[in-house]
Design a protein around this nucleic acid. Structure first.
Lengths: 190, 190
DNA sequence: CTCACTATAGAACACCATGTTCGGAAACGC
DNA sequence: GCGTTTCCGAACATGGTGTTCTATAGTGAG
C-alpha cells in the first residue's frame, strides 16, 4: 500500500467532485446529471475532472468503492453473527450511518451499474457461505443458484425500499424483518 | 375504442421501429441504443420517428403497453387460481410465450422506467388482493406495505433471472419455485 | 524561504446525438 | 383517378462529451 497522502489539491478536488455528484444525484437522479453540472457545483475546471476520472460513471464507481472498503473494515472487526444472512445487520447499520451516500449510490436514483456491482459483491459472499457451512445440505428442491439469487436480490430491494422511505425503522428491526421474510413471511397465505 | 385500423404506412412504420428497438436492446442494451441506430435499422426517416413517438423512451413504453394489454386479455379469461400469488403462473406463461420481447423490455438490458411501471402495476394488483381477501388478518408482525413490496420485487427479480438465464425451467416450475420461496424456502438455515 | 514540480483553470476544439422544420415525393383509401 | 395523409431527406440549432494546450497558482521537500 502507498501510505503517503496525495497532494492536498488532489484531495480537495476529488472530494469536491464526489460531494457534488452525491448532491446532484439526490436532486435530479443519476441519469440526468451532466458532467457540466458536476463541474459547476464543485467549481472545478473541465480538464481537471478528466484528469481524475474517466467519465461520470467512474466517479460514481469510486464512491461505491469508498463505501465498500469502509464496510469491509467494519466487517473484519467481527462481532456479527454467523450464517447465510449474517451480513444483513452490519450492512443495514452501515447504510444507516452513511445514509446520504447510500441513498445516492445504492438507491433508486443511481445507475444500474452500481446495482450490478453490489449484486455480484453480495452474491460472492453468499456463494462462499454456501460452500463453507452448507455442504451437501439441499434446501427443499430449490436450486442453489436460484436461492442465492433470491437471498441477495431480496436484501437489495429491501435496503433500497428502506432508504427511499427515509429509514422508517432502525437497522436492527430491518435485519429482523429481512430474516423473517426469508424464512417464510408469507407462510399462511393460500 | 377506435376499431378502424390506422393507415397501412403507419402500421408498417410503427412495427419497424418497435422491432428495431427490440433487436437493438438485445444487442447492446437500452442505454447504448441511439435514435440514429433505430432509424438505420428500421430504415425510417428521422422526422418520421418523431412524428410517432416523443423520444426513445416513449417507443419503449409503447412496447410495454402492448405486453400489458395482451396480458390483461389472458388474465381476464380466468382459469388462474386465487390468492395473493396467483398472478405468477399466468405471467410466467406470458413471458414464456413472448420471451424475446420480455427479455428486451423487462430484462436486464432495459431501462429503469419500465421496471418502475411493472412494479407499480404488480403492486396495485397485490394491494387490491390484500384488501379483498385478507381483511384484518395480520401476517406475523411484518408491515403490510413492506410485505407487498417484497412479494412484488421478489417476483420481478425471479422473472428477470429466468429470462436472463434463457428460461432453464418451464413456467409452471418457476411459479412453483416462487411460491416456495415466498412461503419460507430459507427456513432451515441458522 | 526557495525552487522544482505538479495540479488546476480556462478556453478552444472536434465530435456526436438530439429534436425541429419544411418542401417535395410517394403511398394510401375511397 | 384524386384528395389526403404520411414519409423522406436534408438542413439546422442546441447541448453534452472528451481532448488539448498554455499560463498560473499551489505544494512539499530540502
Amino acid at each position: 500500500m502507498d501510505g503517503s497522502k496525495p497532494d492536498r489539491r488532489v484531495r480537495r478536488t476529488r472530494r469536491a467532485l464526489q460531494d457534488a455528484l452525491i448532491a446532484l444525484i439526490l436532486e435530479k437522479g443519476y441519469e440526468a446529471v451532466t458532467v457540466q453540472d458536476i463541474l459547476d457545483r464543485a467549481d472545478v475546471g473541465r480538464s481537471t475532472f478528466y484528469a481524475h476520472f474517466l467519465d461520470k460513471e467512474a466517479l460514481l464507481t469510486s464512491q461505491f468503492e469508498n463505501l465498500q472498503a469502509d464496510f469491509e473494515q467494519h466487517w473484519a472487526q467481527g462481532g456479527h453473527g454467523v450464517g447465510l444472512l449474517a451480513f444483513s445487520l452490519p450492512m443495514f447499520l452501515h447504510a444507516q450511518r452513511y445514509q446520504r451516500v447510500y441513498r445516492a449510490v445504492v438507491g433508486k436514483h443511481s445507475g444500474q451499474l452500481i446495482h450490478q456491482h453490489l449484486e455480484s459483491y453480495l452474491m460472492a459472499h453468499v456463494q462462499r457461505q454456501f460452500e463453507q457451512e452448507n455442504v451437501g445440505k439441499p434446501v427443499g428442491d430449490i436450486p442453489r443458484d436460484l436461492l442465492a439469487h433470491h437471498i441477495v436480490s431480496s436484501f437489495m430491494s429491501l435496503l433500497i425500499w428502506w432508504l427511499e422511505h427515509g429509514l422508517p425503522h432502525p437497522a436492527e428491526r430491518m435485519a429482523d424483518l429481512y430474516q423473517r421474510l426469508m424464512r417464510g413471511g408469507v407462510g399462511d397465505l393460500p
